[in-house]
């Protein structure tokens, strides 16, 4: 049984003598690397092509607006934590890094509050699912602060009060009735 094979002949560009001898091509390559070397070594800092961003000194302005940084817990108007200990975040967390122990709140309309709320930053994979899962805008990752390297593991556990100290007032209201009004800008 005869098989037909379609062959498309490719026109190869023949190399010239100088290309085959490598010498001018190597010179061109060297010119590129030497130009980069000279520019990145001897020119003024703003004229360099260096892509490296030196993080703590240069700040975080280069991070996108929705960059996921360290967690923070948002506050109510009276300064209490917004979290109602519904366990949504710790349930969805793929790394099991959120530990919540609920306590009974004095206000019967709130029911619960987190007596203990600890995030293990060593386990956290910074996926942001806890923020997505939160029904009352209590946990956010919009601090823009990088996850910090640390010398001691015990300092990697973020307790509730520490995260509340980074927190702010949320404009979301209970039930979401007034969530879309003029004041509310994301």
């Amino acid at each position: 049984m005869a098989r037909t094979i379609n062959v498309v002949p490719q026109e190869r560009v023949p190399k010239t003598f100088w290309e085959k001898s490598y010498v001018p091509e190597i010179m061109r390559g060297l010119a590129v690397t030497i130009r980069q070397f000279g520019r990145n070594t001897f020119s003024r800092k703003e004229n360099r092509d260096t892509f490296t961003i030196e993080y703590p000194e240069s700040g975080t302005s280069h991070y996108p607006e929705r960059y996921r940084g360290r967690h923070r817990l948002m506050l109510r108007e009276d300064g209490q934590v917004r979290c109602v200990a519904c366990m949504c975040c710790s349930t969805i967390c793929p790394a099991n890094c959120i530990h919540i122990e609920a306590g009974e709140h004095d206000d019967p309309t709130v029911e619960k509050y987190p007596a203990v709320f600890v995030i293990d930053e060593l386990r956290c994979i910074v996926c942001g699912l806890c923020v997505e899962a939160c029904p009352c805008d209590a946990i956010r990752m919009d601090t823009g602060v990088h996850m910090q390297p640390r010398f001691d593991r015990t300092t990697a556990f973020h307790a509730r009060d520490e995260m509340m100290s980074r927190g702010g007032l949320s404009l979301a209201t209970k039930g979401g009735r007034d969530a879309v009004n003029e004041d509310y800008t994301w």
């Binding site: 070397f37 990145n40 070594t41 260096t50 490296t52």
Partner: peptide, 10 residues
């Protein structure tokens, strides 16, 4: 250092 300068690193 030299490789970093060539490759636009620090």
């Amino acid at each position: 250092k030299q490789s970093a300068k060539i490759q636009n690193r620090i």
